[in-house]
Design a protein around this nucleic acid. Structure first.
Lengths: 204, 204
DNA sequence: CATGAAAACAGAATTGACTCAATTTTAGAA
DNA sequence: TTCTAAAATTGAGTCAATTCTGTTTTCATG
């Protein structure tokens, strides 16, 4: 089934996402009306709800693209980490943080995070949780790699450590997007300071 | 000014909160209509908005009561902690977690957390951030106490450690309220496992 | 080509949070 | 007690997300 119907469907998906991304950026998430998104995507309001369960899911689709890009970028670090535990963590988390505002504004992040806790069972809610888990898993993989290289003690609980590092970073990131005036450099510095305690504990 | 007007005002506040708390529990946050809360509190819709900026602020008032109670309970542990770092942390965080579902359902927590990231500058958003900071500060105080007693190394960065412990617990708690079937015992066990890494690093 | 069932679309109607202009109540001065 | 300005209340009206129902489009089949 890759006839006209399927092509039109893919095209409408794309048009809706493009229109929404533009409007979310320009007018903010709250400011972007479904009616306006529909008009700009040249579909009707009803059609948008045929493609996405609710406004949050449209944002969700955009967030997912962003996070998947970040996960990709992170793979490089895991494959070839800096030869120092502190730097390795800082480099990986740095990639997450530096990429984060590439496509999404702080307001979009706030909305996305809010929706994912508000509606954990919606398509986006579940996708967001999966993305969080993928990020945690990548940090765990980095730690495993460092253990293999011999930079991190073998008797460390890599799973628990990965969760600890991710949870702390994520919470700091939430606070970061909540304050419009917060700067990326400060965020990274604060996380480095916190991780220093862990690094001291786990480095060989 | 403690005449009739002030008394009526306090009384209406109380009635609104009581009506809302009951309806939030019974019908859920989304299910509780402002109109219904107003009817049950025997005030008009407009009056509710005279007392609270929005629906979220009503929930906020309830959350604040809960968290303040928790902070109070925590003081006891800080003043007189178990003579073991792991137990001390587990006892304090245990109090937070065990109290958490006393007045608030998981759904109410989800909504409260969502609103606090969605509207960080609303009265409730700011109050929620302040409560988080107070909890972090209490954990930091416990660590300082343990350092004073000689159970935790003096050269540990207590501030950073307090943030790390709080952020991790908070993120775990968020995941906990997102899954209706998650159990408190599992949550506590997972956090203990994560903190074990820290305890090993900081204990004298 | 016709044709009918399934899929997708359109946009009017519904719903519920929030606003606002008009009205009522209170406090305290005369 | 009477009166007035300030404070508070009221509920009908607005606005935007979401739902619903009738219509149109697609496509497999004969």
């Amino acid at each position: 089934m890759s006839g006209l119907r399927a092509r039109q469907k893919a095209d409408r998906h794309r048009r809706i996402i493009e229109a929404a991304a533009e409007l979310f950026r320009d007018a903010g998430y709250e400011g972007a009306k479904i009616e306006t998104i529909a008009a700009q995507a040249e579909v009707s309001v009803g059609t948008i709800y045929n493609y996405y369960q609710n406004k949050g899911d449209i944002l969700g689709a955009i967030v997912s693209m962003e996070v998947n890009e970040v996960l990709n970028a992170g793979q490089g670090v895991v494959a070839n980490p800096p030869a120092n535990v502190g730097d390795a963590l800082d480099t990986l988390l740095g990639i997450y943080i530096e990429h984060s505002l590439h496509y999404l504004s702080k307001e979009m992040w706030r909305q996305a995070m809010a929706i994912s806790t508000q509606l954990p069972d919606s398509p986006f809610g579940q996708a967001y949780t999966a993305l969080d888990r993928a990020l945690t898993e990548q940090i765990r993989a980095l730690i495993a790699r460092l253990q293999a290289i011999g930079l991190v003690r073998r008797d460390i609980d890599g799973q628990a450590l990965g969760e600890l590092v991710f949870n702390n970073m994520n919470m700091m990131f939430i606070e970061f997007v909540k304050r419009e005036e917060a700067r990326i450099a400060e965020l990274r510095a604060a996380i480095r300071r916190q991780n220093r305690i862990l690094v001291a504990a786990i480095a060989v």
